[in-house]
Design a protein around this nucleic acid. Structure first.
Lengths: 244, 244
DNA sequence: TAGTGGTCTAGACCACTCC
DNA sequence: GAGTGGTCTAGACCACTAG
């Protein structure tokens, strides 16, 4: 799934197609030309084009249906690999009432403290940054403290959204095309303002998830999600051998 | 990567081959017959058999080299998806001295406490279980507390190993063929014996990783790895959309 | 330098599905 | 019923590499 050798016919075409999907040139729902047509356009046999489309489908980028053709898939919010759900869905799945409360929203470069929190480089916290902080509730109890910065150069629409009503994560999920994310997970003893906001005693164990999301090479958003320790559990499942 | 529809020629063959690799019928290093031969054996065209072998290779099950043929790959300890390294390697990567100390080893059903810790069912802690507890050190400081149960029915050799010298995780990694694992990760405030062993003050945040490993449908080992909070960090990277 | 996998083609038949 | 993807074949040429 990482960089591959693109020096084959179908490899180059696969690269081109997946790039078009990832960067939004072919948005979700876009209907691709039919197999034979694409094969003719690219001057390859149908078998070769089929290899490309079959791979795209098995990677989840497109949905193929007989008769109706091949369409770009709707990006899914979940992965079979690591279930870090949309927080709203997560709370709902527990049968609880979900609520989101925006605590602060700030254009420009944000507090130095927030930049450190999100491990941002200097050039990643420029003028085109939107800093947000808010709380996810489960049955009116704090469930997750979110601190986030959004690159408004990549997602200019974010400036027009009222994040008191729209949950940033969900909004981004629905707005952006395909993404790539990197997570850092660790345990910390909560303190200070974080503890106050989460209504936890100082020192309570919390799960800190730092998530950096990007489209192609450009970062889009960084989020720090702080979950009261035992309340939250990450689940990951693997094939192949990872560790014992 | 999960269960798929096997109702194609290459699908059925792919299933058969991957099963043979996973269950050890074709052990790591096993040299497969050459493509044309396999195609003849199964009465399919070379293209079809190529599809099978190419897929096996892209899934990492086999290594294909021109001239030398197709061999079953050595299971790798790491995955590109979620880097939870072999603990020894992890410590070594930090440039520190690694040491393993076995604290206890017990045949039979183990303490009820340990069974709870590992979330084992009744039938998963029978007579054919080996309970272990030990500490991984980094520069003589506790780095990870490991509590583990091994299904000796699946891995009978485990009874003959001296786990004072062999690190259970590494030994299993090298002994078993391919595996599937499920991880549960959360943050806890350490206390009691765990705190003492890790030389941490009561209440320090720790990252608890529960890892259940299986071969096909049979569980092989369950491990609870307890890392002093900020010392350890899980890193996970994804393609596609997971959450924002 | 010969054998292996890597790739591609042209053509074929089938099954499903939407109109 | 017609068009689409799903699959398979037989044959071909190439590149790499081990001996």
């Amino acid at each position: 799934m990482a960089t591959e050798k693109p020096d084959t016919l179908h490899g180059r075409i696969l690269d081109e197609f997946s790039r078009k999907i990832v960067d939004g040139t072919w948005p979700p729902g876009y209907l691709l030309p039919k197999e034979t047509e694409l094969a003719a356009q690219y001057g390859v046999s149908r078998m070769t084009m089929n290899k490309v489309l079959t791979r795209l489908a098995s990677d989840g980028f497109v949905i193929r249906r007989k008769r109706s053709g091949t369409v770009v898939a709707q990006p899914r919010a979940e992965s079979a690999v690591l279930a870090i759900n949309n927080i709203g869905e997560e709370v709902a799945a527990l049968g609880r009432r979900y609520k989101w409360a925006l605590l602060s929203s700030e254009n420009r470069a944000g507090h130095a403290q927030d930049r450190r929190l999100l491990s941002l480089n200097e050039d990643e916290a420029q003028d085109n940054s939107l800093f947000l902080q808010g709380l996810h509730y489960s049955n009116d109890e704090p469930f997750c403290l979110e601190t986030r910065v959004i690159n408004t150069q990549m997602v200019p629409d974010a400036l027009t959204v009222n994040f008191q009503h729209d949950v940033p994560g969900s909004w981004l999920l629905n707005t952006m095309p395909w993404t790539r994310a990197r997570h850092h997970v660790r345990a910390i003893n909560v303190s200070g303002r974080d503890a106050t906001l989460l209504e936890l005693p100082v020192g309570a164990a919390c799960l800190e998830v730092l998530r950096r999301t990007q489209i192609d090479a450009h970062w889009v958003t960084c989020a720090r999600l702080l979950y009261p320790g035992e309340a939250h559990q990450l689940i990951a499942e693997f094939d192949g051998k990872i560790g014992v």
